[in-house]
Nucleic acid binder design. Structure first.
Lengths: 249, 249
DNA sequence: CGGTTCCTTGAGAGAACTCAACGTCGGTGG
DNA sequence: CCACCGACGTTGAGTTCTCTCAAGGAACCG
């Protein structure tokens, strides 16, 4: 984890570090990756010196103002959430390396949520105004961005189904395993409370389901460290969410 | 309703009708609307003779194959849904005039759902291959499409919260009133079962909530016809979904 | 090593679901 | 034209899943 070598005290000074895509730990997942050398150069130039190092709890954006920029996560973990009148927080999404923050805000006057770091993170900042200009000149990037939004949309629609706690948690574990490129063992960056909020469950329910999974031999769970023992078993549970059977009415 | 003048028997013959944006009943909501005359002409040319008239139950696309085209709804109402192993249908989205079908499929190899007409409908078909070419030449259209996807994404994320049956139904009624441009009185095109599936509720729960709303004087409800008597009351209920209070943690 | 936050487990409550029955609407065919 | 049929809508009773409330233990930070 190269990023962990940045102590928090460097956040401000390092915030003006020149981003270097060729040094980016998330290059393989970045929407800019896979575009031509030329387009990547455009992107890199437009980024300028925009790189931020949010520490846990630090807010990147909130609903008080229009989102001025997209952020691509280089390292760490962030969340987007809303807070209702009773003060209950609802996590809308987790952002891991390679993910793009703010795609749900480009069509809105006000950003509908607050974004905060869960663990110390690195993000590349791209102002939306500059992005609009950039998209005119970089068709591959445009296409990547559209496909990224499309996948996000499909994912959000899939998760919006009416599923049991076990199905949700199983799908979440599989999704995290995939997104973190973890084989078997993974370290969940976020607390149970956030997982629960994201999956629309109570914190206790998430705990109970994890315990049940452990008793069934599907996983072992030691706080943040989860080891997937029976991925097929989890997939069986998560199937209605991940790959629903598709038929005509 | 100009569309109702198309009897179903004309479906096949009319399927090759030349689309005319200047005659489109949904022009005001279409993503192509508002672009320059030039871009609109590009779009219209690319559409060719692609216009379909799905009748109720007719399937536009299903998960068996990659989605080959986007569809813009000219008239009617369609739904996108999945079917799980138990045969339960889950409605992912409703599409009304001006809506774009398939935005959630551009990043996926296989379309994740089935799309079928609820009422007799008219849709413009735009092949994705042609669309990709078109987007290179029509920046305003690109931007509209991105903003549309962004709003869809934000909407999907908002609805994915953990809300009560009353909050969901209230938000749904307000959303339908807005999308159908109905002032007070609206005709819901879809059956209760589909509403329930979309809101992740049981059909009976939707009925009960509507009855409760009627008893409270918020609405009157006569089968498909709903009249909103107290929009502010509904907004009060739906507020956590529509406009969550946004604060930093 | 004290305090706080997080995780876990238990007991009771409540919201929505399932099952079941009945009324209504719309299309079809006799 | 009307009776029939199926799908849809509505209401009631009982059940279940998840939530809330509560408490204890573990991990982390100052």
């Amino acid at each position: 984890m190269p990023f962990d070598t940045f102590p928090e005290s460097q956040s401000l000074s390092a915030a003006n570090a020149r981003p270097r895509c060729d040094l980016c730990p998330a290059a393989a997942q970045c929407p800019v990756g896979g575009t031509s050398r030329e387009e990547r150069a455009c992107w890199n130039a437009a980024l300028g010196s925009q790189i931020a190092l949010p520490v846990p709890g630090k807010v990147l954006a909130d609903g008080a103002a229009p989102l001025q920029a997209l952020y691509v996560v280089r390292a760490g973990c962030l969340k987007s959430f809303t807070i209702d009148e009773q003060g209950h927080e609802h996590v809308r999404a987790f952002y891991l390396p390679g993910d793009v923050i703010g795609l749900d805000a480009m069509g809105l006057a006000l950003y509908p949520a607050t974004v905060a770091a869960i663990t110390a993170s690195q993000v590349c900042r791209m102002s939306i105004a500059e992005l609009r200009l950039l998209l005119l000149r970089t068709p591959a990037l445009t296409q990547h961005l559209i496909e990224r939004m499309s996948r996000d949309l499909a994912g959000a629609l899939a998760l919006s189904g009416d599923y049991t706690a076990e199905q949700r948690v199983a799908a979440f574990l599989l999704s995290m395993e995939r997104r973190l490129h973890a084989a078997g063992q993974l370290r969940l960056p976020m607390p149970r409370r956030d997982i629960a909020s994201y999956l629309r469950l109570a914190t206790e329910t998430v705990c109970r389901v994890l315990t049940r999974f452990e008793d069934s031999g599907l996983i072992t769970s030691d706080n943040k460290i989860v080891r997937v023992l029976d991925a097929d078993g989890l997939r069986g549970l998560a199937q209605p969410i991940e790959s629903p059977v598709l038929r005509a009415a």
